[in-house]
Amino acid sequence: MAQVFRERANLFMRLGLLGLAILPGSLGLLGFSYYRSSAYTGVGRYVEQPVPFSHRHHAGELGIDCRYCHTGVEKAAFADLPPTETCMTCHSQIWTNAAMLAPVRKSLADNRPLRWQRVTSLPDYVYFDHSVHVSNGVGCSSCHGDVAAMPLMAKAEPMTMGWCLDCHRDPAAKLRPEEAIFDMRWQPPADQPAKGRALLAHYGTRAEHLTDCSVCHR
C-alpha cells in the first residue's frame, strides 16, 4: 500500500502545529496594540467644529488665560464652554466681517448657542471633576497637552482607565506648584520626586486613596 502522505507533509504538520501555538498570542498582541493605538483612542485626531477656533492663536500667540473662557474650571466639574457673548467681547470690534466668524455672529443674533463638538469625552460611569484636579496640583496640559500650540483642537492623551491610573497610582510624578497649573509648557523639573512629595503634603492629598473605586466611579 502506498503512503498517503509524502515525507514533506511532516514539515507542513510541524509548521501548522507551530502556527496553532502562536496564533492566540499573536491575535492577543494584535488586539492589544489596536486598543493602544490612536486609531482606537482618537489621540491626535482633529474634531470638526462649527468655527475653526484656534487655541494656538488665542491661548498661544495672544496669551489669553484658559480661565478667560473656561470660567468653571476652578469651581465645577465641567470646565465650561464660553457663551457666544465671550467670543463677541472682542469680535464685536475686531474681525467683525470675517467669514470664518459668521456662525458666531449668527449665534448671537439668533440667541442660539454654537454647537461645539466634544474633543475629549469620558464614559458616563466616570465622574470626572475639573475643579478638584486644578486646585490640587494637576495642570491643564497634563491631560490636554500643549493646547497653546494646537491650531485646531485634538485629543492629546488616550483617556483610558489605565492612563488615569498612571497618575492616580503615582501622583507625585506630575504634581505642579499652584502657579504652574495653567502653564502649557510646564515640564517636571529634575528633582520632581522630592518636589512631588512636598506638593502632595501641600495640597493635603492622601495618595493611598486615589485608587479607591469610588474616587472615579459611583
Binding site: 495672544l62 496669551g63 489669553i64 488665560d65 480661565r67 478667560y68 472682542c90 470690534q93 475686531i94
Partner: peptide
C-alpha cells in the same frame, strides 16, 4: 485682573493689552 482684564487693559492698566494692539478700541 490678569485673567479677565489684561487682554485689553494690559498688565499695568495702561490700556495697551494684546487685543488692543490687534485693533480693539
Amino acid at each position: 485682573y490678569k485673567i479677565a482684564c489684561t487682554p485689553c487693559h494690559g498688565e499695568a492698566g495702561l490700556g495697551d493689552g494684546i487685543v488692543v494692539q490687534r485693533g480693539f478700541p
